[in-house]
Every structure is written in structure tokens, then in C-alpha cells.
Design a protein around this nucleic acid. Structure first.
Lengths: 111, 111
DNA sequence: TTAATTGTTCGATAGTATCAAAACAATAGA
DNA sequence: TCTATTGTTTTGATACTATCGAACAATTAA
């Protein structure tokens, strides 16, 4: 694994808002009690992953974060460019899931 | 584990030079064939960890990177502030090692 | 004491990141 | 077709980061 790939991955996860988005997709869920507070915890579980895919990801993320949609769109792009998530559109339906290969790289870091 | 701690850790690792320094300390080694090229690979092994501590860390890192020492000093500070490494001085001797707790956080991410 | 080594701090500069507002494009429903 | 929904792109403001050189401080060796 090239160093520069790790740099991309860590850079994508180095912004708090983007990390939240990534974790929402990872959990297949955005029921976070967030909306601006810092109460979002990694251990927070408690919803609805359906085969790891988050349906209507963009709309759901917009619904639970205090960021403009242009900013959220930008963050989705960054996560995709880093290879951390993949997204597909089907009409208005926007589905995202974590790229398991990238997740594997993170798990293998330091091993 | 608070989200903000992960942000700090990932931010510290999101710069290529800083990531190299961190990995040198992690491997207890800076025999990297680097010096500017992008040939540094994560799998690269092949030297001398002594109980996980890198002796004369600052000097050794300066010796194998093309950055000014002020910049390298800054990067060491960032890695310490993120809790990723601990450093101690004993006269002119500067010893660094990876903070195993932080390394554990990284390993536990996504689990 | 003087000189060399080791690392820190300060100030400047160039580049990058974050974010919002507004205009836009594509789709779906009435 | 008209309208609402969904997301993208562009533009621009502001803040943050990476980097260097120079001056500095602390330690060790001569």
C-alpha cells in the first residue's frame, strides 16, 4: 500500500464534519443526536444498516447536519476521491456505502 | 472514544511528511530509501527497533528527509499534540516512541 | 571559556481547506 | 407542461497549514 493512499484517506477523515458523514454511511444510518453538538460518539450504535448501504444518503445527511448542501456535496466528493465511499444514483435515489477495500487499508495500518 | 480525538489523529497523519516521520518512529528506524522520492512503502521493513524506541529521533529524521529542521520540529510537535508519539530528552539525547494507546485507537476505528 | 551540536521559536509567504450563496441541471410528480 | 425535489458547480471570503530562514537557547566537547 502506497504511502500517498494513506495520506488521502487520513486527509479525508481529518475534518470533523466529513468524519461524521463517513461514520453515518459506515453505520448505514444518520440517526445521530448531533445537529451541531459534539455529542456524536464513535460507540453510538442503534439503527438500520441494510447491507451496508445508506439510501437517500445525501438527503439524510443534510437532515442531520447544520451545513449547507453545497458544502455537504463537496464533502461527499472528497470521501469518494479518497476511495472511502462509493455512491450511485438511480433517479433521485442516492445510495452510498463504505468501500470495504479502503476500510481494510485502515484496519491494516500499523500491522 | 470522542470523535474529536480521531479528528486530531487523522489530521496529524494527513500530511505525507508527518506520516513518514510517524512510520519511522513506529518502525524504530529511519533507514527509508526516501530522500524525496515517493518510493517509501508501508511494507518496507528491515531495521532495528529497540523496544519500540527511536534514539536520536530528531537527528535521524533530519538525516533522511529534505525538510528544514524547523519544519521537522514543527511536525514532531504536531504528532505529540495528537497523542501519537511521546518524546523525552536526556541531555542531547532525544528519544521517541509511538504512544500505544493512540495506536490502539487507530486499530479500533471501524470496529 | 569557546565552539559545536541540538533543537525551538518567530515572522513571513504561498498554498490549501472550509464554507456559504447563488445559479444551474436532472428527475419525478401533478 | 409546470413545479418541486435533489444534488452539482462556480465563485468568493476567510481561516488554516506547510514551509523556510534566521535568531535563539541549552547542552556537550575541546
Amino acid at each position: 500500500m502506497e504511502l500517498s493512499n494513506y495520506v488521502k484517506i487520513f486527509k479525508a477523515l481529518s475534518n470533523e464534519q466529513r468524519l461524521k458523514i463517513f461514520l453515518m454511511i459506515h453505520k448505514g444510518c444518520c440517526e445521530s443526536k448531533d445537529k451541531g453538538s459534539s455529542e456524536f460518539l464513535i460507540e453510538d450504535k442503534g439503527c438500520c444498516p441494510v447491507a451496508g448501504v445508506l439510501e437517500k444518503a445525501f438527503t439524510k445527511v443534510c437532515g442531520c447536519m447544520k451545513l449547507s448542501k453545497s458544502t455537504i456535496s463537496h464533502h461527499f466528493k472528497e470521501l469518494q476521491n479518497a476511495g472511502l465511499i462509493t455512491c450511485e444514483r438511480d433517479g433521485q435515489m442516492y445510495r452510498c456505502k463504505v468501500n470495504e477495500e479502503a476500510a481494510g487499508f485502515i484496519k491494516d495500518f500499523l500491522k
